[in-house]
Amino acid sequence: MIAGTLARSFIIIAASVVLAAGYASVMKRPWAPTPEQLQKEKNDLRRREDARKHRAELEKQAGISLKDLQGFISQGQAIFVDARERKLFDDGHLKTPTIVNIPESDVKNQVARLTPDVVAGREIVLYCNGLDCPAAEVVYAELQQLFGHDRMFIYFEGWDGIMKHKLPTTTGPESDLNPAFIGMWPEEVAALQQNDSGQPTDARQPSGDQP
């Protein structure tokens, strides 16, 4: 009984090996990895592990929850930074009084728009696509050099979290970064500018006009 079971099991395993050999020869699959391939994988693993550690540290340091994010939105004084690419921002972004788009691909140029008088005393909240998106971290690092990290936060769930939790979103251009208008809704800014000039003006600059 046992001998028979062992023999049949052996035949099943042998048949699997034969099938695998046939398939491997047809598909030209190797039977052993190359040393270069192993080295590349090890490097990738190390890099991923480092990134994971860095992310964990950053989450402790600057990560905010959904509740915190909602608090910043309702408070209205924070500057929100959408770190996704321009097209994604134009398609839809978080609805909040002050939001700007600083994509990772153009962070060096775009970050200069956040001048000290714009950010003075205000929190900066960053987000990008979601948990796997490093763009917010890149923009965070750039901003950290300018302003330090004590008033900067990242909503790591990003756009995925905003969609998932059905937070208010909108389309259209960025907010006016005039320090006098920070924390004001576009309609309020438009009304203010209308009062000043006697005729209505668009408070938001078209996205193409941004420096």
Binding site: S16, V17, W31, A32
Partner: peptide
């Protein structure tokens, strides 16, 4: 690589 080749057929 050999394990990866064989396991699915097994």
């Amino acid at each position: 690589e050999a394990i990866a080749n064989i396991v699915p057929w097994f």
